[in-house]
Amino acid sequence: MRAREITPLALDSYQRAARVILSNHLITSTYPDRIALPLLRRWATELRDDLLELFGYRLEVTETTARLFTVSDRLNPSAPARTASERTFDRTRYAYLALCLAALGRAGNQITLSELADHVAADAGQVDGVELSTDRASDRDAFVDAVGWLGVRGAIALADGDANGWASNPEAGEALYDIDRSVVVALFRPPRALQHLHSIRGLLAVETSSASEDDGIPVDAKEIGRRVRRALVERPVVLAGELDQHELIALAQPKTASEVELLTGLVAERRAEGIAMIDP
């Protein structure tokens, strides 16, 4: 681990950088704040190595973004996208978000909210079960929520106007946005071509480590360790009852949690039921 090479005086800074990228996955010049990206850029080389070694995650850092490409072992309904008012995204908002990203990827340096809505409405008409009608207030509200999510992360920045005014009355209101193409590109990088997937489960990792020796397939201890460490940083608590026998062995090894502690500065709290990583 590269973390072992970092001096004690600098380790706190390194651990803060690790916590930031593990918590957000996307860092821009303004998201989650203005100090996060310089912090990530300072430790990019070391973090890139440690995140790959411990979790199998890939970190890409540019002048304007830092993007962590994670590995999904299971579906997690407990971490949805949320609106500015903390309302959970529904299927409609997720669909509009995806279509907004597609439209922004084809746009120039600026776009008006009504133009973006027209592009999304046209694309939505080609998808079964998805529709955007700017005549419906509920559709406009959902669309503005998706646009707001992108705005918070810096993919677009309001240059003029008011999105809420457009949502209230699209005939009278309008908004103009600057597009940050580097953030748009960083946001949408699926691990597999989406048109080839039949369900969301197609995005989950498919690993030989999930097999057992009884199947005649060698168990990959390194990958099992990564899977358990992923659980330690992605779940509030890792319950022993949810793990298979190979994962239980990996979890019981002191170095599994201690490596996560060293990377993040979190403290492993062990109970008979499992382990939780605690921020002191």
Rank of each mutant, 00 (worst) to 15 (best):
M1R: 13
M1D: 15
R2N: 08
T7R: 15
Y14H: 05
Q15V: 06
A18P: 05
A18G: 09
S23F: 02
S23V: 14
H25F: 07
S29T: 15
R34E: 07
R34T: 09
A36I: 01
L39A: 14
L39P: 08
L39E: 12
L40E: 00
R41G: 05
R41L: 02
W43A: 03
A44Y: 00
L47M: 12
R48V: 08
D49M: 12
L52E: 04
L54R: 13
F55V: 02
G56F: 03
G56M: 10
R58D: 07
L59H: 14
L59R: 06
V61E: 07
E63S: 05
E63N: 12
T64H: 09
R67S: 12
L68A: 12
T70S: 14
V71H: 09
S72P: 02
D73E: 12
L75C: 14
L75E: 11
N76Y: 11
S78F: 15
S85H: 06
E86V: 01
R87A: 04
T88P: 05
T88D: 08
F89Q: 04
F89Y: 04
D90T: 11
R91F: 06
R93K: 03
R93Q: 15
A95G: 02
L97K: 14
L101D: 00
A103F: 03
R106S: 12
R106N: 04
R106K: 06
G108C: 07
G108S: 11
I111V: 12
T112E: 09
L113V: 10
E115P: 02
E115C: 06
A117G: 01
A117P: 02
D123Y: 09
D123P: 12
G125M: 08
G125H: 00
D128L: 08
G129L: 11
G129W: 15
V130D: 03
T134A: 08
D135G: 13
D135S: 12
R136I: 01
A137C: 01
R140Q: 03
V144F: 01
G148P: 05
G148Q: 09
W149A: 05
G154M: 00
A157Q: 04
L158C: 14
L158A: 11
D160V: 07
A163I: 07
N164E: 15
N169G: 08
E171Y: 13
A172M: 09
Y177E: 05
R181V: 14
R181T: 15
L187E: 05
P191T: 14
A193F: 12
R201V: 10
R201F: 09
L203P: 01
L204E: 06
A205L: 02
V206E: 02
T208E: 03
T208V: 15
E213A: 10
G216V: 13
I217L: 11
I217H: 09
V219T: 11
D220E: 03
D220R: 06
A221D: 11
I224E: 06
G225L: 10
G225F: 11
R230Y: 10
V233C: 09
L239G: 03
A240C: 04
E242R: 10
L243R: 09
E247M: 04
I249A: 02
L251I: 07
A252T: 08
Q253N: 00
Q253R: 15
T256I: 08
S258E: 06
V260T: 08
V260N: 07
E261D: 06
T264E: 04
L266K: 09
L266M: 04
A268Q: 01
R271M: 12
I275K: 14
I278Q: 02
D279T: 00
D279K: 03
P280C: 13
P280G: 11
